[in-house]
């Protein structure tokens, strides 16, 4: 075990943390907004809405994330009309492609989680709300939303951890986040075990903090403060 090397590479690898966190943060926020929309479409009785949502979720969940990234980054760039349109500002950058891919991915997985949460709201609660003269918006805000959040939170915590792990893929399109830097150091020093321990510990620490945060949020929503 080369401890000197581990110590030195720690300060190299830690430089990738801001990029990893930035990508996680942005894709999670955009993805969550999109997921609510997709989940609402998915539960709609109108086939015009529910079918596209179903196929979107089906495609994203049935294919590897790396393939989705390559499809967006290399596949779409093939067409001249895309390269000449305003879309190119987004698609020419590996960073934006990475964020876009992760946003779409987490949107599909989170939509299923949200759908599961919404379907756990028993119809009796909604009926009780309407018999008390609550408007549709008020019912959504006071009955459906709190129960959905309470139900969906544990699964959403898992999704956040999967997102942190998924950001490692953007290193394949040349972005130097934690895994990208780790890989560079491994191929320079040929010390895979040492670098794995350093980079792995950083990921475990990030995921530990997220787990704690979700536990805290679960505690909050389960004690009636929302």
């Amino acid at each position: 075990m080369r401890f000197e090397l581990m110590y030195e590479s720690f300060f190299e690898i830690i430089k990738g943390v801001p990029l990893t966190l930035e990508v996680v943060f942005l894709s999670t926020i955009f993805g969550l907004v999109l997921a609510v929309g997709v989940a609402l479409m998915r539960v709609s009785k109108n086939k015009f809405f529910s079918n596209p949502a179903y196929y979107f979720i089906y495609t994203i969940r049935g294919t590897p994330l790396l393939l989705q990234l390559f499809f967006i980054y290399y596949g779409l760039a093939q067409f001249t009309f895309i390269r000449e349109s305003f879309l190119w500002y987004v698609l020419e950058s590996p960073l934006f492609c990475g964020i876009l891919t992760l946003t779409l991915s987490t949107a599909a997985y989170s939509a299923e989680i949200i759908r599961g949460g919404m379907q756990s709201v028993s119809p009796g609660y909604i009926e009780a709300g309407s018999s008390m003269g609550m408007s549709k918006m008020l019912r959504l805000r006071k009955i459906i939303l709190p129960i959905t959040i309470r139900q969906a939170l544990p699964a959403y915590g898992n999704e956040l951890i999967l997102m942190v792990k998924a950001t490692s893929l953007i290193s394949i399109v040349t972005l130097m986040e934690i895994t990208g830097i780790a890989r560079t150091i491994i191929s320079k020093t040929y010390a895979p075990v040492e670098i794995f321990i350093v980079a792995g510990s950083i990921y475990l620490f990030i995921n530990f903090v997220i787990t704690r945060f979700i536990k805290y949020a679960e505690h909050k929503v389960n004690h009636g403060s929302i």
């Binding site: 951890i161 942190v164 792990k165 998924a166 950001t167 490692s168 893929l169 290193s171 394949i172 895994t179 780790a182 890989r183 491994i186 191929s187 040929y190 895979p192 075990v193 794995f196 980079a199 792995g200 990921y203 475990l204 995921n207 530990f208």
Partner: peptide, 19 residues
């Protein structure tokens, strides 16, 4: 289970590919 589920798959693959 904690380590493997908390660390990116790609990192595990690099570990075994190089080591």
């Amino acid at each position: 289970t904690t380590v493997v589920r908390g660390v990116p798959e790609l990192l595990v693959i690099y570990l075994l590919f190089f080591g």
